[in-house]
Structure formats: structure tokens, C-alpha cells
Design a protein around this nucleic acid. Structure first.
Length: 435
RNA sequence: CGGGGCGUAGCACAGCCUGGUAGUGCGCCUGCUUUGGGAGCAGGAGGCCGGAGGUUCGAAUCCUCUCGCCCCGACCA
């Protein structure tokens, strides 16, 4: 993409409404624009990141055996009246009416709908287990949306729902998601730590929040350093086999948010392993038994011919929130530092002198070598503007093309994360970028 | 939902107290000069001062109502 023709509006100054660093950088780097309180439009660069995050989530859900579907954003109130949550959910639920006066709502989550959907088809224990997920926009009419996309009213969420015959099988489904989450966040370059959580209005007993560590995180967390030394990607899990040892490792060490903090248990952690940090919740998983399957009329016939009410769990990841969370965890004074896996582009080519034949040729060749993954700054601005925008936008690699280097056939390749610079030929640079 | 604050040009803000017909910086357009870390000079475009009522000869400024947005708290993927 050529910057001279793209819709990537960067801002030199920070808009007054943005308080936290990710919100400021998302506005300044031209990722999003607010359209109403807590509601955002995603511009090209932001959309690419959002889609990259969603892609990783999707790949890990699929790998863990979940199947993707897509449920609507608008739901009938009747569905929620059956579970009793139409009354319970309160003002956070955006209620609307269609032209016939029928009560509808913009879905804040999909337990009722997915359960009804599944109940209409499942009749036998052979239809279990199943895990269905979708990545869809949700709306929760937060009293006070803030922090940009971090706590918006409209947000993109991955939510998965598992259906099992027995409690034991259901706990296995829970562990599958638990492990999938560890991998998902690790692939985005994040340190995500599972922590015991309250189940809130969704209900149930088994529940973990996945918290990523970021200096600017909104909640205080306490954890055992042992959890930070482990790489979830070190080996591929066998989702069909027992995942208990893996999950046990992650749950036997101390980790808690300040709400659940237990001073006694904390004191038992050796002092040199105590880590007190800030965190952001990016995922939440629940096991809630028959809380929805029962009222929604989901039942299947077991091997013995008796009716069984399936056990369920639900598993959320805040996809749009993750974009902000990643920035909170990865930025510096100059701007965003995108982890390679989610970066909108791999390469940002800076043509410092458009119009100079050598610069145009070399910059164009670099860009054209990976057109879908490169952005070319071919604007007529001064070099300083381009350097500043490139750092702000945070693309992992910058190829700086000036007249002097171009004449010698050299590009200056800069790694955004480290600031490291190398003088390379075009081929060498491409080899390194493609890594 | 309780408390507080702010709406003036694309962005950041001044002007409001003490009414007299709108300004600064950045950005934008044109020209010249400049050209490796957010350039210089000159010229220029751009505002129903959030909206509606009212007071007044006259309202960005005073009064009333309304809409929007932000911050703190309680709540939350």
C-alpha cells in the first residue's frame, strides 16, 4: 500500500479524550476513530491488526477442536426470557423493538442463542461433545465506556460454547480451551497468566481469567515467577489426551488479581519468586454445568436410553480489546511496537526522496517484493515526518531509502523493536524480513 | 447511576469573569528556498463559537432548557 493513496490519518497531537497510552496511540497511528461514546470505526491499519488477532484466535480454536459458526448480533427477547436473564441483565443490555413492536436486543453474549441452536439439532449422546464458537460484535451498554477500545460498548469478541455429556467430559473441554488460550496469547507475543476468577452473572464454579501483564494495566495482580518462565508454545499439546498435567502446572502456582488476593497463600510463595504487577483481562473461561442447557430445553438421550442434560461451558476472548492490550504491553515513547504476528504490515518502506530515480526504483522494488505485507511512504514530506510516522505506526521492519544508499544499492533496515540498523542489499534485506 | 469538567477551524487551545461581530500554534492549499529525525519565508483557504429559546440596540461571552463528550467512583470480555 502506498501512503500517498491510503487512508492512514496520523496525528501529531493527542486528542483530548484519550487518557491511556493505547487509546492515544490508536488514535494517533490512525487505527480507529470514535463515532459515539464507546463505539469505534476501524480504519485500514487497525482493521488489519484486528483481523490478525482474530486469525490467531481462530487458528487456535480450530486446533483445539472447536468449530466456527456465526450467530447474529440481534436476538429476540423471548430467548432471554427463557433463561431468566432478560430481567437479570439490567441496563447493560441494549433493548430495541422491531416494527411489529416485538422486543429484541443487541446481543451482549450468546449462551441462550447457541444453546437453543444446538438443542434444536442434538438428540443423542453421539452429538456430543461439541464446541461451537464465533467471532462477532457484541454490545454492552456500559454506564461509563472509557479507555478507547479497551472498554468500549461495542466490541469484537470470540465466544465459544462447549456441550458435553458428563461433568468430567465437560472439564476436559474446559481444559482444552484453557490450553488453547495459553497458546493464543503467547502467539501474539503476550505473557498471559490464568487466574482464579469470579463467575459473575454467567454463573458456574470453574472459572479463570487470563490476564496479560502490562505496566499500564488496570488491575493489580500477584503471581509466582515460575509462571513467567514457561513458554506455552514450547510443545504442541495433544488435545485428545489428558491435559491435566499442563493445566495443573498453571494452576498450582499462585496467581491472583487484587480482588481474589489471598495474603496467606501469597506469603507462602518464596519472596524471590513473588511478582507484583499490573494486568489486563483479555480472556475469561467458565464452566457452568446445566445453567443454560436446562432452561433452554437441551437434552439428549444417553447410551442407556435415559435423557441427559448436557454440561456446558463458555469461553470468551476480547478480540478488539486485545488490540489495545497489545499496545499497552508493547510501545515506547515514539509509538507502537507491533509484535510480528499481529502487525498490520511486516515492512514499512521509507522513500526519503520521492522523485529521485534511484530512491524510487529501490523503494518500489522493496514494496513490490511483498505488496500485501508492505507499506510504502512515497509522500512528499520531509524525512523527519516519515521517521516519526513509521515509529508511531510500529511496523516491525523499516527499510529506509535515501539518495546516498540508493546510489550504492543499499537499504538501511531498521528493526522497530530494538532500533538495530543494518546496511543491506535489497535481497539481503528481504531475506531478513521474511526471516 | 452518584460526583465533577468540557463543547470555539482537521488537532491542541486562548477569548467568556468585565457583551461591541473570532484568534494563536500545529495541520491543510499555492509559490520559492530547503531536504537523514515532525523545515524557513511569503501568500491563502477553512468556524451558524454543539443545538434551541430568552435578555439586550448588540450574545462565543449573561440566563433557561437540551444534546454530546471526558474524568473520578460503583460495574464490567
Amino acid at each position: 500500500m502506498r501512503l500517498s493513496r491510503s487512508f492512514l490519518p496520523t496525528l501529531k497531537e493527542t486528542p483530548a479524550e484519550a487518557q491511556i497510552v493505547s487509546h492515544r496511540l490508536m488514535l494517533r497511528a490512525g487505527l480507529v476513530r470514535q463515532t459515539s461514546a464507546g463505539i469505534y470505526a476501524w480504519l485500514p491499519a487497525g482493521l488489519r491488526v484486528l483481523e490478525n488477532v482474530a486469525r490467531i484466535v481462530r487458528e487456535e480454536q480450530d486446533r483445539a477442536g472447536a468449530q466456527e459458526i456465526l450467530m447474529p448480533t440481534i436476538q429476540a427477547a423471548e430467548l432471554w426470557q427463557r433463561s431468566g436473564r432478560y430481567e437479570d441483565y439490567g441496563k447493560e443490555m441494549l433493548r430495541i423493538e422491531d416494527r411489529h413492536g416485538r422486543p429484541m436486543l443487541y446481543g451482549p453474549t450468546n449462551e441462550e442463542m447457541v444453546t437453543a441452536l444446538f438443542a434444536a439439532e442434538a438428540t443423542s449422546y453421539r452429538d456430543l461433545p461439541r464446541n461451537l464458537y464465533h467471532i462477532q460484535w457484541k454490545f454492552r451498554d456500559e454506564v461509563r465506556p472509557r479507555f478507547g477500545v479497551m472498554r468500549g460498548r461495542e466490541f469484537l469478541m470470540k465466544d465459544a460454547y462447549s456441550f458435553d455429556l458428563t461433568k468430567e467430559a465437560s472439564e476436559h473441554s474446559y481444559r482444552q480451551m484453557f490450553v488453547a488460550y495459553l497458546r493464543t496469547f503467547a502467539r501474539m507475543g503476550l505473557k498471559a497468566i490464568p487466574m482464579q476468577a469470579d463467575t459473575g452473572p454467567i454463573g458456574g464454579k470453574l472459572s479463570h481469567e487470563f490476564i496479560i501483564l502490562a505496566e499500564t494495566g488496570e488491575s493489580q495482580v500477584f503471581l509466582d515467577r515460575a509462571l513467567l518462565d514457561f513458554d506455552p508454545l514450547a510443545e504442541a499439546p495433544d488435545y485428545d489426551a489428558g491435559l491435566s498435567p499442563l493445566v495443573e502446572f498453571w494452576t498450582k502456582h499462585y496467581a491472583a488479581t487484587d480482588e481474589k488476593h489471598d495474603e496467606a497463600a501469597w506469603a507462602a510463595v518464596p519472596a524471590e519468586r513473588q511478582v507484583s504487577a499490573r494486568g489486563i483481562e483479555v480472556g475469561h473461561i467458565f464452566h457452568f454445568g446445566t445453567k443454560y442447557s436446562e432452561p433452554m430445553g437441551l437434552r439428549v438421550q444417553g447410551p442407556d436410553g435415559a435423557d441427559v442434560i448436557p454440561q456446558m461451558g463458555s469461553y470468551g476472548i476480547g478480540v478488539s480489546r486485545l488490540v489495545a492490550a497489545i499496545i499497552e504491553a508493547s510501545h515506547d515513547e515514539a509509538g507502537i511496537i507491533w509484535p510480528d504476528a499481529v502487525a498490520p504490515w511486516r515492512l514499512h518502506v521509507l522513500n526519503l526522496k520521492p522523485g529521485d530515480a534511484g530512491c524510487d526504483a529501490l523503494a518500489g522494488a522493496l514494496h513490490d517484493a511483498m505488496p500485501a505485507q508492505a507499506i510504502l511512504d512515497d509522500r512528499g514530506d520531509r524525512a523527519g515526518v516519515k521517521f516519526a510516522d513509521a515509529d508511531l505506526m510500529g511496523t516491525p521492519w523499516q527499510a529506509i531509502i535515501g539518495p546516498r544508499g540508493a546510489a550504492a544499492g543499499k537499504v538501511e533496515l531498521k528493526r522497530r523493536a530494538t532500533g538495530e540498523r543494518l546496511e543491506l542489499t535489497l535481497e539481503e534485506a528481504l531475506a531478513r524480513i521474511r526471516g
